[in-house]
Structures are given as structure tokens and as C-alpha cells.
Amino acid sequence: MSSPLPVIAAAVAALGFGVAYAESTTAPALTEDECRAIWNTAAGRAELSADGAKPYIDNFESVDTNRDRKVSNAEFRAGCKAGLVHKLHRVE
């Protein structure tokens, strides 16, 4: 009997969840102070665009949870807690 995993993975990918999950990387969660400092540097009072997020977020779609192509302060803070935001751009 074959594994149902390929079928499940295809269904998840078709719904748009697979790409963000497969490509997301997590780091240790940032403290609230670290997160606030990065937000103030990256966005300040505005929402954060994909280009503005590049130094701090490896997978923009994983943090942009409402899919409006910008990261709000609330989404950014949630990304910090989830380990999806980091201090410096990582080179892999």
C-alpha cells in the first residue's frame, strides 16, 4: 500500500499552504524589545513591504498572514514570536 503523504502534500500545496511551510525557516523567537527595535528600523509607523522585509524575513508569505502583500505591526510581532523574523539577513 502506498503512503498517503504525496496526496496530502499535493492537496495542501493546492490550497496555498505548502509553499510557505516548505520554504519557511525558523530561528529562536526574538524578545519583544528586539522585535520592536527591528520593526522601528524596518518599517517605523508604516506597513512593511516585501522588499523592506528581506533583511529580516526569509519567507515573506509566512508572516503576511492575510496575504495583502504587506506586513502589519501585528503580523510582524506574531512572526517574531514564531521565529520567522531574525535580526540579520542570513546567508545560506
Score class of each variant (00 low, 15 high):
4 P>V: 13
44 G>T: 09
88 L>R: 14
4 P>M: 01
92 E>P: 14
17 F>V: 13
72 S>N: 07
64 D>L: 07
78 A>G: 01
77 R>C: 11
9 A>N: 03
45 R>W: 12
88 L>A: 11
25 T>G: 02
61 E>A: 12
81 K>A: 07
55 P>T: 05
52 G>N: 06
66 N>Q: 07
77 R>I: 15
89 H>M: 12
8 I>R: 11
77 R>S: 07
1 M>D: 10
62 S>L: 12
58 D>E: 15
35 C>V: 04
64 D>N: 13
1 M>I: 15
56 Y>Q: 02
57 I>Y: 04
44 G>E: 00
21 Y>Q: 10
18 G>E: 02
35 C>E: 05
86 H>N: 12
4 P>C: 04
76 F>K: 03
31 T>G: 07
92 E>A: 04
74 A>C: 05
36 R>E: 09
52 G>Y: 12
13 A>L: 08
56 Y>K: 05
62 S>Q: 00
11 A>F: 11
61 E>C: 05
55 P>R: 07
44 G>R: 07
73 N>Q: 14
47 E>I: 10
49 S>K: 04
23 E>T: 12
3 S>Y: 10
71 V>D: 00
45 R>F: 13
4 P>G: 10
46 A>H: 13
13 A>Q: 08
81 K>L: 06
49 S>R: 05
34 E>W: 11
10 A>W: 09
34 E>T: 09
4 P>Y: 04
26 T>W: 07
92 E>G: 03
64 D>A: 05
27 A>I: 15
80 C>Y: 05
2 S>A: 13
53 A>F: 09
42 A>H: 03
24 S>P: 03
47 E>P: 03
32 E>V: 14
10 A>R: 08
67 R>A: 09
71 V>R: 00
8 I>Y: 01
88 L>W: 13
34 E>G: 02
5 L>S: 09
3 S>K: 10
25 T>I: 15
54 K>I: 15
14 A>S: 03
33 D>V: 12
85 V>T: 02
7 V>S: 02
37 A>P: 11
60 F>K: 00
19 V>L: 06
26 T>A: 02
35 C>M: 10
34 E>I: 14
49 S>M: 11
45 R>L: 12
88 L>F: 14
28 P>H: 13
87 K>C: 01
83 G>A: 11
56 Y>P: 01
9 A>Q: 08
20 A>K: 08
10 A>N: 09
61 E>Q: 10
53 A>T: 09
28 P>L: 04
42 A>V: 02
22 A>H: 07
